[in-house]
Design a protein around this nucleic acid. Structure first.
Lengths: 234, 234
DNA sequence: TGTATATTATTTGTCGACAAGAATTTTATC
DNA sequence: GATAAAATTCTTGTCGACAAATAATATACA
């Protein structure tokens, strides 16, 4: 017998479904393709990915575990809102994690870590050069995440990556309307940080990381202050 | 027609199933009723709780998200092992979280927080008095968790609670064979910490928390050292 | 016309069944 | 008797269907 239709659908492998949905939804949430507060429909997703609701639900449970979506029992589930009221707790945590991960990187990094870090820094510099705000956000996060990895503390990298994700979401929210650009200064600060890590200067790593983090926090706060004024005007 | 069997099973409410399984498995893992590395059978759990595998699986996905169980795709799932090799990363994170949460508690606590904290301290003191090692572990964790709550930073409390859970698991592992007792000294240190929090003395809170944390870490390390010697003897 | 109740529709949580992978056992071959 | 291949058992991942909970709509009544 002759097979006419050899299954035009990609024919996913068993178990790959959840990961695919998880990764894609995660990206769409962090890239603000799915805006905070927007509803998530299981059935719709099931149709879109051509699979049953079961793997979709598993992906959603995972995302809920990371705080990226909120689930009201027996009711709707939606993209997690950004908590502007407790923003300062976010900043506190971010600054501390910048400091501790950079310190640990200075202590525990291996030669190959520096290569990865420098590569991310090159991408960040390129993004700044090109004045591509969205790329800046992404590459900056990747740069600091790589530093944290070099510190080799899974507890810290876990929290830090979560904070970087949340920060990415917040920044995108504002860079969508304002095509402001992060200053060249950040590129230089990154270079300095790489240098002290390479020198294994833990004290100086802490100091620079603190300065850099506060610099970034300040930048974000300025952004929000401007937006606040706009909100009042509306 | 006469109904003979009027459903003797509690008749759970819709949606309560997953939470029940999640909570119970979580407790059993943290209390070492389920030992690290022991396999988890979905079908068995489904029979035990008299429900289908679907809600069981959801609970397992959540536990996996918190790192309490490990899942090999298409293969078995088991209680997460304790990572003795990277123990120092655990201690680093624990000490830092002790410090930062205590500091924030000194800054941001409200009067009612102190009541809760003092209540937990009373329970801890009672456990020490009764030389109930297991109770000490639990009440000590609750005490510090309450302090962290008073600091009102969800990012920190999230990581800290996770660390406390992991610590509870490690300690139980050893207090099962050794009925050693944490010294009375910890009770006094707790009292001192409560005092500086009440005084809103942030600097001193940091200092005491650091000392206390290092004290506890030292205690745990002593325990492990003793056990290590035993392992060699086997 | 506005409010309360009943009806319908939508969506979520749970179930039993089935199929794909992996582990285990059995059979075949040297 | 040891190794390789085949068959079987077992466990997991996925599916379609159904029922409970909620939301939306229609109806009744003042």
């Amino acid at each position: 017998m002759t097979d006419i239709d050899t299954s035009p659908i990609p024919e996913r492998k068993r178990g790959s479904g959840v990961k695919m949905v998880y990764d894609l939804l995660r990206d769409e949430i962090l890239d603000l393709v799915l805006l905070p507060g927007s509803p998530i429909d299981e059935v719709q997703l099931a149709e879109r990915f051509k699979m049953s609701r079961t793997p979709i639900r598993e992906a959603l449970v995972r995302l809920a575990g990371e705080g990226l979506i909120d689930t009201l029992p027996n009711r709707s589930t939606m993209v997690a809102n950004i908590d502007f009221l407790n923003m300062h707790t976010f900043f506190d945590a971010l600054v501390l994690m910048y400091r501790v991960t950079t310190k640990l990187a200075a202590q525990y990094h291996r030669p190959e870590d520096l290569k990865v870090i420098r590569a991310h820094q090159a991408e960040f510099a390129a993004a700044v050069q090109a004045q591509d705000a969205l790329a800046m956000i992404a590459t900056n996060a990747a740069f600091h995440s790589a530093i944290a990895e070099a510190g080799r503390n899974a507890y810290f990298t876990g929290l830090f990556n979560r904070l970087l994700d949340e920060g990415r979401r917040m920044l995108r929210l504002y860079y969508q309307s304002y095509d402001d650009r992060l200053p060249q200064r950040f590129v230089e600060e990154h270079d300095d940080i790489i240098a002290v890590i390479a020198n294994r200067d833990v004290e100086e790593a802490d100091r620079l990381a603190k300065l850099h983090a506060e610099q970034i926090v300040h930048q974000i706060q300025k952004l929000f202050a401007r937006e606040d004024r706009l909100d009042v005007a509306l």
